[in-house]
Structures are given as structure tokens and as C-alpha cells.
């Protein structure tokens, strides 16, 4: 029976009536999921506008949007720099630099992000601070007071949690982006570097004028996707009591016992931000591809 049914189904697919093909194809290709997504936003907006409990939750939680966006933007910018430098290090001919880069990437990839955030905030930053202190004392002995003074005065307790969160996110994402940059650079054929070097350019001139412009163009979509990921992963910094939207939603839920309202609002807020960003990334990707076609 089941066999017969599949056979019939196959025949149906194999010979669709010609008249309906066009319309059916259009129906099949229509992005229905967008309607679902818009439905979620409309429904949530409706809840916020008509129910006092949702309105309270929304008004309370939206105060964290600034921190979430700010944390993401700064950490992303730092991760880009760290990633580019590490990516260049990973392909360096200098054995020490190349191994240091690889070690960094492998360590970060091997530890869960939540654990990394705790680790960097409570182990990494204090270690960094005491290193700077020691560096300051060393400068003091050399008599370089103007450098020594600010270094000695840094205190671990004085480093705010937001700063720790940003350092943690950028160190983590720097490792991911290093791999993106490395892949992008290695995707450019060897002939490009050879042509540039044959013209008398130094390695760094060739990198800057020939290799990186092409490599970065190739990895723009991947970098964009990472930005969306980072926006989502910034919710992890709530474990450091940084008042991003996740932390504020948690506070609101705990205080008002309106768990449903708090977490529905929180989830939809993230969804809205990532949907807009993803659309931007797709647009960017299409533009890069168009440029490629026209050249």
C-alpha cells in the first residue's frame, strides 16, 4: 500500500499539469517564513500595546538595548583588529609568531564561550593587571616615571565588569575571526604575491595593496555573519552582571515574577535585531557579488 502511494506520488511529480506549473512553482518558491516572522513581530507588538504586563516588561527591558549594542560594537571592532593580526600571524614565516597564533586559536576554540567569559573576567584580567603593575615597577627602576606611574596605579578591582565583558568577547571572537582572515588570505592565488614581490614590493606592501583588499572582500559575508553571532553571544555577558538586555530581563522577571512577559520580550528583541542585521549582511553579500560580475 505504502509502496503504491509513493509510486503515485512520484508520477505526480514527474508529470505536473503544464498550466499549473508556473503558479505552483511560484507558490513553492515564495518565502513563507517571512510571513511567519512578521507574524511573530505583529503578535508581540499587539501584546505590548494591549496588555499592561507586557508593556511594563518592554519598557523595563528596552533600557538594556544600548548596553547590548554598545558592547557588541566595541567588542566586534577589537575582535576585528585582533583577528586580522592573528590571521596574519598564522601564515607568518616566523615560527614563533605562527605557533603563538595557532596556540591562541586552538585554546579559544577548545573552551566553551561561557567558561571563557568567566575565565577572562576573573583570571585573565587580574593576571593582565598584575603584569602591567610589574611592568610599571620595572619602568620605575629604570627611572621612567611618566610611564611607570599610570601602570602602577591600575587596580584590578577598579576594572568595571563591562570592560571585562568586552575584553572577554573580543578575545573569544578574535580567534574565530583570525581563521576567517587566514582563509581569506589563503584563498588568493600565489601568483598575486609573486607578481607584487617581483615588482619590488615588500611583503607588507604586497599584503596591504594586493592581498588584503582581495581577501577582505572575499570574507565580508563571513565577517558579517560573525557580527550577528556576536550580538547573540553578547547575552552571555549577563553572567558578569553587565546590564545588557538579558541581564535586565532576568532582573525584571525575578522582581515581578512575570517570567513569560520578560522572556517573550527578550527573545523577540534579539530576533528583531538579528533579522535586521542579517538582511544587511545579505545585501552586502549581493553587492560584493555584483561588483565581481561587473569587473
Amino acid at each position: 500500500m505504502a509502496v503504491k502511494e509513493t509510486l503515485e506520488a512520484k508520477q505526480h511529480i514527474a508529470s505536473p499539469s503544464l498550466a499549473g506549473t508556473d503558479f505552483k512553482e511560484k507558490l513553492r518558491l515564495f518565502p513563507w517564513w517571512i510571513i511567519g516572522l512578521v507574524g511573530v513581530f505583529v503578535l508581540t507588538a499587539h501584546l505590548i500595546l494591549t496588555r499592561a504586563s507586557y508593556q511594563d516588561a518592554f519598557n523595563f527591558i528596552r533600557a538594556g538595548i544600548g548596553v547590548t549594542v554598545q558592547t557588541t560594537l566595541i567588542a566586534y571592532g577589537l575582535a576585528l583588529i585582533l583577528g586580522l593580526l592573528t590571521g596574519l600571524g598564522r601564515i607568518s614565516h616566523n615560527v614563533v609568531i605562527q605557533n603563538l597564533g595557532t596556540l591562541y586559536v586552538e585554546v579559544i576554540r577548545g573552551v566553551p564561550m561561557l567558561v571563557l567569559i568567566f575565565f577572562i573576567a576573573f583570571v585573565g584580567v587580574p593576571a593582565g593587571v598584575s603584569l602591567l603593575n610589574r611592568l610599571g615597577e620595572w619602568f620605575l627602576q629604570l627611572g621612567l616615571l611618566f610611564i611607570a606611574q599610570p601602570l602602577i596605579q591600575i587596580e584590578n578591582n577598579a576594572v568595571p565588569m563591562t570592560t571585562r565583558a568586552i575584553i572577554a568577547l573580543s578575545v573569544t571572537y578574535g580567534a574565530f575571526q583570525a581563521e576567517i582572515f587566514r582563509a581569506g588570505i589563503q584563498s588568493i592565488g600565489r601568483g598575486q604575491m609573486e607578481a607584487a614581490r617581483a615588482q619590488g614590493m615588500t611583503y607588507w606592501q604586497a599584503m596591504r595593496y594586493i592581498i588584503l583588499p582581495q581577501a577582505i572582500r572575499n570574507v565580508l559575508p563571513a565577517l558579517g555573519n560573525d557580527f550577528v553571532s556576536m550580538l547573540k553571544d553578547s547575552s552571555l555577558v549577563s553572567v558578569l552582571a553587565v546590564r545588557d538586555i538579558t541581564q535586565i530581563a532576568k532582573l525584571y522577571a525575578g522582581r515581578s515574577f512575570q517570567y513569560q512577559e520578560a522572556y517573550v520580550t527578550l527573545a523577540v528583541l534579539y530576533l528583531m535585531m538579528t533579522v535586521v542585521l542579517s538582511a544587511l549582511v545579505k545585501w552586502l553579500e549581493r553587492r560584493v557579488r555584483q561588483d565581481e560580475r561587473s569587473t
Binding site: Q192, Q199, G200, I210, T295
Partner: peptide
């Protein structure tokens, strides 16, 4: 500086596509 005084033409051109 020596390389800059030697022009090289490659089999696959190796022009800078960007």
C-alpha cells in the same frame, strides 16, 4: 630595489584583479 629593476611577465598574467 634589485627586483624593481627587473620586469617579469608570467604565464598567467597575474594582474591585480581589484
Amino acid at each position: 630595489s634589485i627586483r624593481s629593476q627587473i620586469g617579469m611577465v608570467f604565464q598567467h598574467f597575474n594582474l591585480y584583479p581589484h
